[in-house]
């Protein structure tokens, strides 16, 4: 029963801690504008980096916002890590392989659940295929990223022991996973036992894998690997957030609310404090 509870707890921690992180960013006070163009939601202008400031008396005109443009850019970034592909292709191969592998592994987990509810052969076949692809891509990507961090003198210089630890932790989860699911117990069988709350009696390899997997789930949202949360805010709520402060706007409402709580901490330079 320990492993059933442990895994459910670990996944819950992953979700709760990630949500908490997102909530913390969302609750931060409205910030000064830091527009950085191109902004993909600028309809008809995103391609060359233009904005509504190219209009005369822009404040009297309706804003042309393209949500499709923004979603398209977001999807290209999420699914293909577009910026890295464009700006640093050499690193992209490893990074993309790793991230794509993780997406496949998420898909694999979902498919395992579906397959548990619908034990059909073709779903089982798809599940296995997706799992194999996920482990393979994630392993190759992670391994290459780790090697680059070790052997590229520039990357090495800026990499802290914790960042090596992060990569090694995931690599160890992947290696133990590959070993456990291919030699000890089928993942379908395992998920069945887990979800039916049958007592799990995993062997040594599965035990090691499950413990590492649980640690990883709990640890990821607590370190910078939770950039899946931060990236959304960095783009959508900072660089692409070019909402002007017009009378009656949401921005104005937020500013009025913020003005109720002026800062209590004061800067000390003479030109400010005197």
């Amino acid at each position: 029963m320990f492993f059933n509870i442990y895994m459910i707890l670990a996944v819950s921690c992953f979700i709760i801690f990630s949500a908490y992180k997102a909530w913390k960013f969302a609750k931060m006070p409205i910030h000064s504008r830091l527009d950085l163009y191109p902004i993909p939601k600028e309809a008809g202008r995103a391609e060359y980096g233009g904005s509504y400031y190219e209009e005369i008396e822009w404040w009297n005109k309706p804003r042309a916002i393209s949500h499709i443009g923004e979603i398209k850019d977001m999807l290209l970034e999420m699914l293909f890590i577009k910026k890295l592909f464009v700006k640093q292709k050499r690193l992209w191969w490893a990074s993309y392989s790793f991230h794509l592998g993780i997406y496949f592994l998420f898909g694999w987990t979902l498919l395992l659940l579906i397959n548990f509810a619908l034990p059909l052969e073709f779903i089982s076949y798809i599940t296995s295929t997706v799992g194999i692809m996920g482990f393979t891509l994630a392993f190759i990507g992670n391994f290459l990223l780790l090697m680059r961090r070790i052997f590229d003198s520039t990357l090495k210089k800026y990499t802290t022991p914790q960042e090596f630890f992060n990569l090694i932790l995931i690599l160890s989860v992947l290696i133990t996973g590959i070993y456990a699911w291919t030699t000890c117990i089928s993942p379908q069988q395992f998920i069945g036992q887990l979800l039916s709350f049958s007592t799990l009696q995993p062997g040594g390899a599965v035990t090691v894998h499950l413990i590492l997997l649980g640690v990883m789930f709990i640890y990821i949202p607590l370190c910078k690997m939770n950039h899946y949360v931060g990236k959304y805010f960095a783009f959508h709520k900072v660089l692409w957030e070019n909402e002007p402060n017009l009378p009656g706007s949401n921005v104005e409402t937020k500013l009025i609310e913020a003005a109720v709580h002026p800062p209590q901490t004061k800067w000390s330079a003479p030109h400010i404090s005197q």
């Binding site: 960013f25 931060m28 006070p29 640093q88 990357l155 960042e163 910078k224 960095a234 900072v238 800062p263």
Partner: peptide
């Protein structure tokens, strides 16, 4: 507070990909 969100994001997430 006017820079807290962008500052925190940049401080926390750099993966030093260069």
């Amino acid at each position: 507070k006017n820079f807290l969100q962008p500052l925190t994001l940049t401080m926390e997430y750099c993966v030093k990909c260069n």
